[in-house]
Design a protein around this nucleic acid. Structure first.
Lengths: 224, 224
DNA sequence: GTTCGGATACTCGTATACGAGAATCCACAT
DNA sequence: ATGTGGATTCTCGTATACGAGTATCCGAAC
């Protein structure tokens, strides 16, 4: 539910939020693998703050579904088995299809150009770590005119939740080129304001990801 | 995102969670109106605990979208304007249509009977305050066989978020009888395993709610 | 009378301190 | 050798204490 309006909330950044941001990025990037224990005092010392803001950060990340906590045991990076990934991608397909359908008719040229610009950035970006962010920016640009802020927030949250595994996908060269061409198709159909065709491309895009993950990710299904 | 598996998590209940539950119910019930300030020290004294668990509870409720917090100002019960209600109901229509479509083919007779039992309970229940809970139970029973726990969690979260306003609806006698008959229709179509007809009934059900709220709720659109 | 400036009060964020519950490990008995 | 019991240790949850930022209110000057 976070990120529902990150830009327009002029709240001062608390330490807890900064910690949450760093942890989220570390988890998405992969340096904190699934199952890694996250002890409050260890993190507190590492960041140079007390346990309190770390607690808040862990709570927030738990709400986002990327860490699990237990009152008497230490928190750990959420393990995600194949069924959960499937569920997330199924929900994403549902949410994003609707967002796309709503957005395409109202999509301004600026947003389309913005999405095109992001595509060029992806081509030019050598650092694989940033692709997850760019991928999200591309999709959100296309959905931005859907007229439902809450829907956008949910989509962003689910991107965050699945980011780790999408990045695994993106490290696969084969998938990378195919998905990039799918993104191009998606942008083209949007430029033609053909919502239904765009939805078909999107669903194929996400379906491909699910399939690739199901094959490549047999080893990642760890039980706690 | 809460309630994704309330039953199966055998975590010990912390004070913070108990506080969150009480506050959530008070907000849904209406005794804490939108905009009501929620000062940490006041709540702490009222509950007889320190500010820390209250802080945690407020954070959790913020993640659920029913309270708003600000680093330097006091938290308050989230105000919800007409557009936000529309957004929530639109998302619910999307999520629940899909859940219903997935669930109906796999729906066992036990769950159908359970839903029917809840319907009888609604008829017999004099206390309006419990209807929101019963209404949620009815819907979740019908979706329970959708095979996607995350989808169910999202639906439950959005029920919670809109609960306050649904209860306003339910206090309207006119709407109450109509919605009850719609629920009956919904159950009937599910019994016939006619998913598409069920979805149509559901969408009408939610659409009616939205319309009634839009008319009756002109006065509830408070600006912060 | 109005407006600007400063001091005061209020609320939250963060730090430190303490207590409770669970898991682990070792010793002892069988 | 193995199983059981208790003590120790580890981690989190909660309480208390302090500091920082903001809004408010009052007084003085224009």
């Amino acid at each position: 539910m976070r990120g529902l309006g990150d830009v327009l909330m002029q709240k001062p950044l608390t330490v807890a939020e900064q910690v949450a941001n760093v942890l989220r990025e570390s988890i998405a990037e992969g340096s904190l693998a699934a199952g890694t224990p996250l002890r409050q005092d260890v993190l507190a010392e590492r960041f140079g703050f007390s346990r309190m803001p770390v607690r808040d950060a862990l709570r927030q990340l738990e709400a986002e579904g990327i860490v699990s906590t237990h009152p008497t045991k230490s928190a750990h990076v959420a393990r995600m088995d194949a069924t959960e990934i499937r569920e997330i991608l199924a929900v994403r397909a549902l949410l994003e299809s609707e967002a796309l359908r709503l957005s395409v008719p109202n999509l301004g040229n600026e947003k389309l150009d913005e999405a095109g610009h992001v595509l060029k950035q992806i081509d030019a970006e050598p650092n694989v770590g940033r692709w997850g962010t760019l991928n999200r920016a591309f999709h959100l640009a296309l959905y931005s005119a859907c007229g439902n802020a809450r829907l956008l927030g949910l989509i962003e949250a689910h991107h965050n939740a699945a980011d780790r595994y999408v990045r695994i996908l993106l490290s696969n060269l084969n998938y990378r080129s195919r998905s990039q061409s799918e993104r191009r198709d998606l942008l083209t159909t949007c430029r033609h304001r053909d919502a239904e065709a765009a939805v078909r491309v999107l669903r194929k895009h996400l379906g491909d990801g699910m399939e690739t993950l199901a094959h490549a990710g047999d080893g990642l299904a760890g039980k706690s």
